[in-house]
Structures are given as C-alpha cells and as structure tokens.
C-alpha cells in the first residue's frame, strides 16, 4: 500500500498543474467555509448566513458539508485528468508491462481518492467545529455532535462521486467524454425521476399529494447521483428566513441512500477493474 501511495505521489505531485489545482481546491474549500461571515446584498436586503444560523449547532454540520460539497466537481476534474492521462499517455499499458497488476492500478487510484476525500472531510470537520464553537448561539454539549453524521455522509458522498468519475474515466479514457458521459447520466437520472414521479402522482388526489411526496419512496431515489444528493439535504430550509415563512425542517437519516451509495461505489470500483481486465491494451 505504501508502494502504491508512493507511486501516485511520484506520478501526480511532480506534475505542476496537479499540485497547483489540488492546493487551490483546499484553499477555496477553507475560504468557502467562512462564507457565513460575509454580508451578501440580495435585492437590497442584507443576507448574512451566520445570522441565518449557518454556524449554529447542530445545523452547522449540515450547512458546512452542503456548501463545500458543491466544490467536489473541482476535485473531481483533477482526479479525472489524472486518471485519463494514464490512458492518453499509454502509461497504463506501460505500467502493466513493467509489472503493475490491474488490481494495483485501481487500488492506487482509489488510494488517491481516499486520501483527498479523507483530507477534505477532516478539514471540514475541524473548521466547522471551530466555527461552531466560535459563533454558535447554542453551546449545549448534547447539541454539538447531534448531527455530526453529516460529516460521515460528506465523506461517503465524495467517495461515491469520485468512484463514479473513476469508472467513467476508465470507461471513456478521454476527459472530454467523461464529462459528457457524466452530464448524460445526470440528465438521464432527472428524466427517469421525472417520469416516475409524474406517473405515480397522477393517481394521487391533490389533498394527499404533498404528504405522499414526502413519505413515498421512489425507485429513482436510488439512482447514483440522486442517492448522493440525498445524503446531505439542502440546508436553506433551516435558515431563519425560511422559518419565518413557516417552512419546517424535517430530516430522517437517509439509510437507504447510504446503502445505495455504498453499493454504487462498490459497483463503480469493481466495474473499473472489470473494464481494465476485459479490454485489450
């Protein structure tokens, strides 16, 4: 394992763009966590996310993980380019000829993903904790870690997302096709979800409709990208502003989505290996 990490270190960290963009990602991530301290001017109204409860325990875990998860595509690009260049430079083939097994190749890429995901998660945890300690209106000890599971969900979300990108990279081997493929899957999920919702809802009367939507489990909820997004719900409904409008925040821990993500990640990793094994290089 140390050997594989060293290999990835040699391949990636000597590549200046990789180093620069990976560093930039973490800088932006940290900056984004402090976004609540800034006053926004929206339609003449001053909005300050801190005032809206962004750093209040226990919601701080939801707010911070949701916000920085938006950055994952940035890190995703770095990972996609790093994997695709192995194929475009014919280095995967050369690595295999030199004596690196296909298992080791996948494991080394997975390790890179794990290192980035773990470090990103660690940063979010530490900084969110400090921000909560500094700015939260409540410091009740039982509230502090009440929703800390969002940090785990963030880890899983990133891991599944990057496994998905790794799979697409191995499948298409050209970064432009990886992104096209990604958007295709995204559209496809939205369309499938839309069709399922419409076809089921038309049998439900108007009065029960809202309640039904909140309780019914749709098959399309288990699609990869949808499962990932369900791990961390949008915290906008938790803002004080939303509460004024009478929107209530209801959240049940998404066990189904956690399991769906674990299965998806496994399928993507095994699938990547299968492609490497089956294809002639």
């Amino acid at each position: 394992m140390i050997r594989l990490l060293k290999l990835e270190y040699l391949k990636n960290l000597n590549y200046v763009p990789f180093k620069v963009f990976a560093g930039l990602y973490f800088v932006i991530l940290v900056v984004l966590l402090f976004i609540g301290l800034i006053d926004f001017d929206i339609f003449g109204q001053t909005i300050n996310l801190k005032e809206q409860g962004m750093y209040d325990f226990p919601g701080v875990w939801n707010f911070t993980t949701y916000t920085v998860a938006l950055l994952k595509i940035f890190l995703g690009c770095i990972i996609v380019f790093s994997i695709c260049q192995e194929f475009s430079n014919r280095m995967f083939k050369q690595n295999v000829i030199d004596g690196l097994s296909r298992e080791e190749f996948i494991a080394s890429k997975l390790l890179t993903i794990l290192v980035f995901t773990a470090f990103s998660t660690f940063l979010v945890f530490v900084i969110a904790f400090i921000l909560g300690k500094s700015y939260s209106t409540t410091q009740d000890s039982h509230l502090i870690f009440k929703e800390v599971y969002f940090v785990f969900n963030y880890f899983l979300k990133l891991l599944t997302f990057f496994s998905f990108l790794m799979f697409l990279s191995v499948l298409f081997r050209k970064s432009i096709f990886v992104f096209l493929g990604f958007f295709m899957v995204w559209f496809a999920e939205k369309i499938i979800g839309g069709i399922e919702h419409i076809s089921i809802i038309k049998n439900v009367n108007d009065i029960e409709r809202e309640k039904f939507l909140n309780t019914h489990t749709f098959y399309s909820d288990f699609l990869p990208l949808e499962s990932m997004s369900r791990l961390i719900p949008s915290p906008l409904v938790r803002t004080k502003l939303a509460q004024i409008f009478g929107i209530e925040f209801k959240f049940v821990y998404p066990w189904e989505s956690v399991i769906a993500c674990l299965i998806c990640a496994t399928v993507f990793i095994v699938g990547s290996y299968w492609i490497l094994k089956r294809k002639d290089w």
């Binding site: 290999l7 014919r90 280095m91 050369q94 030199d98």
Partner: peptide, 19 residues
C-alpha cells in the same frame, strides 16, 4: 511510453518502484 511532464530520472523512479 513515459510521463511526458516528468524528467527521465522521475520516470525511472516510477519504473523502479513498480519493478
């Protein structure tokens, strides 16, 4: 086949690591 952005030395370090 080598990593184009790496020096000969770094490229061979990778091969040495694999082999």
């Amino acid at each position: 086949n080598f990593y184009p952005y790496l020096s000969a030395e770094k490229n061979l370090e990778i091969v040495a690591e694999i082999k």
